[in-house]
Amino acid sequence: MPQDNPTAPMDDREPVFQARIDRDEKIEPKDWMPEKYRRTMIRQISQHAHSEVIGMQPEGNWITRAPSLRRKAVLLAKVQDEAGHGLYLYSAAETLGATREDMIADLQSGKAKYSSIFNYPTLTWADIGAIGWLVDGAAIMNQVMLCRTSYGPYARGMVRICKEESFHQRQGYEIMLTLSRGSDQQKAMAQDALNRYWWPSLMMFGPRDDDSPNTQQSMKWRIKRQTNDELRQRFVDQTVPQAEYLGLTVPDPDLHWNKEREHYDFGEIDWDEFWQVVKGNGPCNRQRIAHHVAAHEEGEWVREAALAYQARKASAEEAA
């Protein structure tokens, strides 16, 4: 299977494919593509879809307890947006020949991953603010880049999704702003949320570049256009002044502005924790999957009924 090794192209369609990529042409579902490109794309898009869907759990955890009716409505609408993103991304992956059933099965078996950030618990209302601000903020960094990714349906989906994500980020920041201008208890709640969500947010960009074997190929295929470390640096540079404006302290003693680099230097991520959570041993990994499985199994009879009804209607129409 020579097409499995893109560094040694045997298929003469592959240079043509690469030339199209190099000219910044979009690859469309019906176009020929190396099998490995297809598989990488499916893996990445479905993983992204799963992240949107699993992310509904920690945020949904606060819908019934939101502190005001306005906040409740905004949070409901946000979680609904995330469900919409998931749906949209599953459809994008389907254009590559994946089926939703298989993707969900891979999620539930642990074969497919989702963003590790959602394996941390939302313990207080401030966590909803921190997620909007930091997690949607980090997601935007990634997704702005993906608006120019080489696979057409994914890139177009990202353009739409990015608009909503920046809305989410503003809403999250506004929650943090309200808390940080509030009572001592509220300020402490906001600081605690930042303390717990800061490092996991930095982990969202993935392993260090020298630890990320797929990066080079992804850059060559223009799936990614910036490396994990470049995006992480941009996120830190953008977010630290926002934390300062809130009057909150970023929980990193090594964080300081580097005049020569014109970037913030920051401390080392706890990579043991990172890999533990990726491997399934984070605080909520098991809970998230169990929840997804339980809801899916509880819905089985509904899905069966819908199929049976559809089949009966179709055969009645045929008979008529």
Partner: peptide, 28 residues
């Protein structure tokens, strides 16, 4: 709103969130 992330399909999570949003809007 309790149905959020608990529906039989993702499509249904969206539909029920919509209904919940309508009710919360009315309540307000």
């Amino acid at each position: 709103a309790e149905w959020c992330s608990n529906g039989p399909y993702l499509e249904e999570d969206i539909a029920l969130s919509n209904v919940a949003l309508d009710y919360i809007g009315r309540a307000r």
